[in-house]
Amino acid sequence: MATVLKNRAIAAPKEPGEWNGLLAGIYTLWLKHMRKFRSSPVEVLFTLATPVLWILFFGICMTGMVVPTQTGLGYQAFITPGVMLLTGLTASILGGTTLLLERVNGTLKEYLVAPIPRLAVLLGSMTSGLTKAVLQAIAVLVAGAVLDSTLQFRILPFLAALTIVGVYSLGFVGLASAFASQAKSMESYHSLIMVMNLPVLFISNALYPLEKMPVTIRGLAMLNPTTYGVDACRILLYGSKPEIGLGIDLVVLAAFMVLGIYIGYRSFSSVMQKIGA
């Protein structure tokens, strides 16, 4: 453990100009990933389509079946925060895919012999993943506001909710980077992600309120960062009655973000040691 942290290759910059290298590296990787994202309209379309489909079909159809909950929201509004976070999750996973692909196709080596710290490679990937997450969350918010009158276009709540999505996504970007650093192949990465993806959505208050869950599942849901993200977004966007409370939400989400990034960093740096093996 300690050796990983002492690894010279990824330690804080010591040589002159390395801080510049760090910033330049992060920015360049971000720019590259964004260029690729932009030049593949299919990726953009699919990632945007999923959440909109959720709101359109699942939201509208379920509305007839669901009695209003103590949050005081219509069902479509009720699931919008969850769908927004789900979008963030998807984008984080895509961020991990980018890193994995670059590792598998050898592009990573180009970065590693460039005068940028290795940390920049990880942070660059994370930053681009985060950007995609936030862009998509904006799309969901817009779709939500268009489809449902309870959501008003208001700058401050929007920004606050987007920040929540960002913090939540960064945690998952970290975890995805950890998987991506270690995964042997694209297939193993995706099977892992699939296993993670659905429980993160279902074992949370994204689609149903905590009070309606059996106690055990509610306990599990309380371990899921999605629950806190959804609660915070509902409060910030709709001013709904809190299930947990904004303060706790923020603390838990921040802790999750730090943990996720740390795990990603650890995993990435241990792989850096083995490269070329």
Binding site: N20, G21, A24, G25, Y27, T28, L31, K32, R35, K36, S39, S40, E102, N105, G106, T107, K109, E110, Y111, A114, P115, I116
Partner: peptide, 21 residues
């Protein structure tokens, strides 16, 4: 070969130059 398949040649070279600031 360690090239990003989806970038154009120009973009790829440009990114490389930026990496070296």
């Amino acid at each position: 070969v360690s090239l990003d398949r989806n970038l154009t040649g120009r973009s790829l070279l440009d990114i490389h130059g930026r990496l070296y600031q």
